[in-house]
Each structure stands twice: as structure tokens, then as C-alpha cells.
């Protein structure tokens, strides 16, 4: 029976992917994209890759979908053409996607199949400081990649903030939200955050031993902040607030400090000696989750705006 489930899942993923690309209307494409991400997360669960499934559901489907929706709303507000002209195929985009797909297929065929993480990982894991092999790879054995990823997120936010107008720089982030007092959105914004904070903190905390971690948990925490802002319960801060800037760089900063600590103890930069690996990874996870949550929430909320610049 499980093969029927898997076959149905594969067929649905392909169908939804086609609907995303070929369907009419940008809004419809975004909705299908989110559904595609959720189905993909189910597929990762079926492949026993729960860490990837969590990341796909939280970041791939949830956060990216919200970013697309925000961009769509912004285009519509500014009066720009959100919809492509009907009946025209964007040849350049089609060629680029086809080339990328071709390159990926080539890589898949040409590269040797990676073996299951073998005896090396099993041998090294007891010295990693954590029990979840995914976390051990992300924050210890391949810490470089994760450090750079966290810096890339920060760079993306800096790039977004560069779009702000000079006169808006001291304003709060994003546009003011208009919510009916006592309406459904206001009460949703009050009920969800306590549960969301609990789930997000748990996912971060449990990442050391079981699927979860800073990226997945941080995204859940970011979603809590976005919901609270959308419900008008909290006003997004100003760029100039130092405490929030500190929250943005806390993750990369603690990560770098741990890396330098490894060097000072003679193990080498970003190599965590077994003695401190567990606590170092825990500190990095907490700081990273904070930074990821704030960065992602700010990315969705958008650059500072005066709210007066609609033509």
C-alpha cells in the first residue's frame, strides 16, 4: 500500500509544479507554489528526512510563500503590472529554466551516487557534542557552510534595507497595519503567539538530539512576530534601534566567537573540541535562532516606509 501513497504523492507534486508554472495569474501561481512546498515536505517525511521536511515546510512553503504574497501585494499597490501580458511566453525565462533543469539532470546522472553516511559519521558522532547527526554536520563538521548561510541572510536584509528612501530611514519597518479592533485577525494574533513561541523554542531546543534546529525553529518564531505585526498588536521597530541590530548579528557573532574559541584552544578555526562542543553548539543554536527569527521577520515586513509614497 505504501507504494500507492508514494506514487500518488509524486504525481501530485508533478501536477502542482506544472500548475505553478503553467497556470494563469501570479496569485494562483503563488498559491500552487505553497501547496507544492507542503507536498514536498510530505515527500521528505516519506524519505525519512524529517529535518529537511521541517525546513521545507517552514522556509520553502511558508516563508517563501509569504514573501511572494508580500511582493505581489506591493506590486498591486504601486500600480505596476503584476500580471504578465496574456498569451505571451517569456522565452528567456523558459530557456534559463530549461538549461538549469538540464544541468541538474546532467549532474544527477554524471555524479556518483553518494553512499549513506557511513562509518566515518558513526565514528565521529560521539565526539560532536550532539546526538542528531544532521545538527552535528550543520554546526560542527561543516560549520563553515552554516556560518556563511547565516551571513547571507543578514546580507539579504541589508540589501532590502538599501531600498528604503532616505526620508523613511528613521520610520518603523513596513507599512502600518489597519486591523479592526476586536476582529478575527486581532484575536488570532493574540491566541497564536503563545503556542507559536512554545513550538518554535521547542524545535530549536530539541535540535541537538532529534529533528529540529535553529533554522526551523527560528522560522516558526519569525512567523509569530509576523502574525503579531499583521494583527497590529506590535509595531515593527525602527532600523536605528540598537537592541534589534544586536539581535540581527547575535547568531553570526556567537558562531564566529565559538570558531575563534576553537582556534584559541588549539583545535583550529571553527573546529569545536569535544570538551566544549555540546555547550558551544547549544549557544550557537540559541543565538542563531534569535538572529534567523528577527532577520526573516524583518525580510517579510519590509524596509522602513513613511506610508505616504503611493503616487
Amino acid at each position: 500500500m505504501t507504494w500507492a501513497l508514494d506514487a500518488t504523492l509524486c504525481a501530485m507534486i508533478l501536477a502542482v509544479a506544472l500548475a505553478t508554472v503553467l497556470g494563469r495569474g501570479v496569485f494562483r501561481a503563488i498559491v500552487f507554489f505553497v501547496v507544492y512546498g507542503l507536498l514536498l515536505a510530505l515527500a521528505w517525511v516519506r524519505l525519512d528526512a524529517v529535518d529537511v521536511a521541517l525546513a521545507e515546510a517552514a522556509i520553502g512553503a511558508g516563508l517563501t510563500g509569504v514573501l511572494f504574497l508580500a511582493a505581489f501585494g506591493r506590486l498591486a499597490r504601486s500600480g505596476a503590472d503584476a500580471e504578465p501580458p496574456p498569451g505571451r511566453v517569456n522565452i528567456a525565462a523558459a530557456l534559463a529554466s530549461a538549461a538549469l533543469t538540464g544541468a541538474l539532470v546532467w549532474a544527477w546522472v554524471a555524479l556518483p551516487l553518494p553512499g549513506r553516511p557511513g562509518p566515518e559519521l558513526a565514528e565521529a558522532l560521539p565526539r560532536a557534542g550532539v546526538e542528531n547527526p544532521v545538527t552535528a554536520v550543520l554546526l560542527n563538521f561543516r560549520a563553515w557552510d552554516t556560518l556563511l548561510e547565516s551571513v547571507v541572510l543578514l546580507a539579504a536584509l541589508v540589501g532590502l534595507w538599501m531600498l528604503a528612501r532616505d526620508e523613511a530611514w528613521t520610520e518603523p519597518l513596513g507599512l502600518p497595519q489597519h486591523v479592526r479592533p476586536g476582529g478575527v485577525m486581532a484575536s488570532f494574533g493574540r491566541i497564536l503567539p503563545p503556542v507559536g513561541v512554545l513550538v518554535g523554542a521547542y524545535v530549536v531546543y530539541v535540535g541537538a538530539d532529534r529533528p529540529g534546529g535553529a533554522f526551523q525553529g527560528g522560522t516558526v518564531l519569525a512567523a509569530v512576530g509576523i502574525v503579531a505585526a499583521l494583527a497590529g498588536l506590535v509595531r515593527p521597530p525602527r532600523v536605528t534601534r540598537r537592541a534589534w541590530r544586536a539581535a540581527l548579528v547575535a547568531g553570526p557573532a556567537v558562531f564566529l566567537a565559538a570558531g575563534l574559541g576553537g582556534a584559541a584552544l588549539g583545535a583550529g578555526f571553527l573546529t569545536l573540541p569535544e570538551r566544549i562542543a555540546g555547550s558551544a553548539i547549544f549557544a550557537i543554536e540559541i543565538a542563531l535562532a534569535l538572529s534567523i527569527a528577527v532577520t526573516l521577520a524583518f525580510l517579510v515586513i519590509g524596509p522602513p516606509e513613511t506610508g505616504l509614497e503611493d503616487q
Partner: peptide, 17 residues
């Protein structure tokens, strides 16, 4: 039960909106 309650909450809110 928690999952069901959360879906109820989200679905109810979204359909209202």
C-alpha cells in the same frame, strides 16, 4: 488534539478574512 485545534483556529480565521 493540539494539531486539530491549531488547524481549526487557522482555518476559521483565514475563512473569515
Amino acid at each position: 488534539a493540539l494539531i486539530w485545534a491549531l488547524v481549526l483556529l487557522a482555518a476559521g480565521t483565514v475563512s473569515q478574512l
